[in-house]
């Protein structure tokens, strides 16, 4: 499992101006940042540097720790393997050639520029998303999505899934531990059956987890009924954004838009 289940929760309760900023503003600014990066043409190093400086400034201000964010951002790196193919995709000055059977691949400087640009964009985008999550309570984020007109059903589902995610992850981890305990291996000997047998075991674990989850959801539903659930979710009415928050949002988006505009035009 490459996915880390340690969800940066320990940074969420620190106090900084970034933490205090409304989740809606932070969410929209993050989307704006990622969108601006996506619009950025390849090889605009100056603009990329400005974007990075902007983001890192905010990270430093947020007390989360630049190094943490930068290190975590490498989760998206394996996908860069796909971007390697960009090396060979552009016409231009050749760098080196690779012969693969009937296929000769020629890497070009333009291809290299495209490759580095895509990897940088991806890396910075992940850092922006990480900063958002590290400075915002997930429930606030979900409520922000509701305020931004995500259907109520999906908001409720997201909140539910988030609530039980860690419960079920622990259930899954207990099952994995139980399997490990029962799967002793003598050194130098093959363990267990073939792939088919192993897959059958995992499939039955998945099936068991499904049944346990299903039964848990029934218990939850009954518990909700007993507390007066009628099919409707009530949340505290959200206040609208203050003039100051709107100002921050407007300035942030304008800044991102102008960086992109300048990068595209010049």
């Amino acid at each position: 499992m490459t996915l880390s289940t340690d969800a940066l929760d320990r940074f969420v309760d620190r106090s900084s101006p970034i933490h205090a900023l409304d989740a809606r503003v932070k969410f929209l600014l993050t989307i704006g940042f990622v969108l601006a990066l996506a619009f950025m043409p390849f090889g605009e190093w100056a603009a990329m540097a400005i974007m990075a400086a902007l983001l890192w400034g905010i990270v430093a201000w947020s007390q989360v720790g630049l190094l943490t964010i930068i290190k975590r951002a490498f989760v998206a790196l394996p996908f860069a393997l796909v971007a390697v193919s960009l090396l060979f995709s552009r016409p231009g000055e050749p760098l080196f050639s690779l012969a693969l059977g009937p296929l000769t691949l020629t890497a070009t400087t333009a291809g290299l520029v495209a490759f580095i640009s895509v990897v940088l964009k991806s890396w910075l985008s992940v850092q922006a998303a990480l900063t958002l999550v590290a400075t915002t309570h997930f429930i606030d984020l979900i409520q922000a999505l509701r305020a931004l007109r995500l259907p109520a059903v999906l908001v409720a589902l997201l909140a539910f899934a988030y609530r039980y995610l860690f419960v079920l992850i622990e259930e899954a981890q207990r099952m994995l531990r139980a399997r490990a305990v029962r799967s002793a291996v003598l050194p130098g000997q093959r363990s267990g059956g073939g792939i088919g047998w192993r897959a059958a075991v995992v499939g039955q674990m998945v099936g068991t987890l499904f049944l346990r989850s299903y039964e848990r959801s029934e218990r939850i539903y009954v518990a909700m009924l007993s507390r007066g659930y009628t099919g409707e979710f009530r949340t505290i009415v959200r206040r609208s954004l203050t003039a100051g928050e709107e100002g921050i949002l407007a300035i942030g988006l304008a800044l991102l838009a102008s960086i992109t505009f300048l990068a595209v035009m010049f």
Binding site: A156, F160, E171, L176, F210, Y214, R216
Partner: peptide
């Protein structure tokens, strides 16, 4: 199944997430 469906599907999403952690060596 409107009102029933929300706790069921919410927990099921958590289930799929957790089930993705169950792996076997290939």
């Amino acid at each position: 199944l409107h009102e029933r469906q929300i706790p069921l599907m919410g927990v099921m999403a958590a289930f799929i997430f957790a089930a993705q952690m169950l792996n076997f060596p290939v």
